[in-house]
Amino acid sequence: MRDDAGLIRYALRRLLQAVPLLLAAATVVFFLLHLAPGDPAAAYLHPDVPAEVAEQVRRQMGLGRPLHEQYLSWLGSVVTGDLGYSFSQGQTVARAIGGALPNTLLLGGAALLLSFLAGGSLGVFQGTRPNTATDRTLGTATLVAYSVPGFWIALLLLLLFSAAPVRELLPLPLTGATSVDHGLMDPGGRVLDRLRHLVLPAAALSLAPAAAVARHARSAVLEARDADHVRAARGRGLAAWSVTLRHVVRNALLPLVSLLGLYIPRLMGGAVVLEVIFSWAGMGRLLYRGVQARDYPLVLGATLLFAALVVVANLLADLVYAGADPRVRYRSSRG
């Protein structure tokens, strides 16, 4: 773009804004968690273990020290990338997250892509024939899809795809991220294997966001259709589909990009419960297991990472938007 320096300055400013955001987020969660009743060491230790050993394990977990010391040392190590040791996972939090993150990114990315592709096309389809019976029917359908609880749809999908007739027609793996013999497959087979495992969870996860995107896209298309240059293009006698593609859809895309930041937290939230149901070894399941085991370092790390994902995703969405629309860079904040 013409104004690269401006864009970089803007990016840096946004990045700097994100840092205190993350630290503050970490602080909030850390102190909240330590208000909780229940001794995390009790879940881990055999009750018959002598008191001194229990104490030693607590020390090892950092639970014996005063709260503010735990907090400061934790904050210090977070900055250096050390998120502590997860006693429920038997490995460092960073390693546990490192193992889970790619799965969540894959699922979230696939669901995001699916929402924008499916939802976007549906919206454009509706927007080019507004207020027809088709449009109204689809409008109702998207609102229903938007209202269906994800966990419920997931259960119904499992029920459906484990039924014998459906299974013969469309054999899909139900749960997990890869097949048992994934390691034995050739590279092409592995990609296919991953894709097949993605279908059900990504479909369940993207249902509501796709519906939302469809509704946004529809109104964006409607708005773009009324823009002067589109009217002009139509006036020049260009073919309807070409006007739609060249002018309407292109202009409707920009506001959609700005929505990315809005959907990512939703997707991440939806992933928590869907990862549990679909045995998807990602961040959501890690968080849930951490909560169940009162594994403080793990819950802290996972929550922090979710916040970081959202912040980074928002940053990216903003940068894309700013790259496309220079006016944005000079606004100090969104909304």
Partner: peptide
């Protein structure tokens, strides 16, 4: 496979 419904669905399939 933490979810009981998913375990049974996997067994059936």
């Amino acid at each position: 496979v933490p979810d009981p419904a998913a375990r049974m669905a996997e067994l059936r399939s």
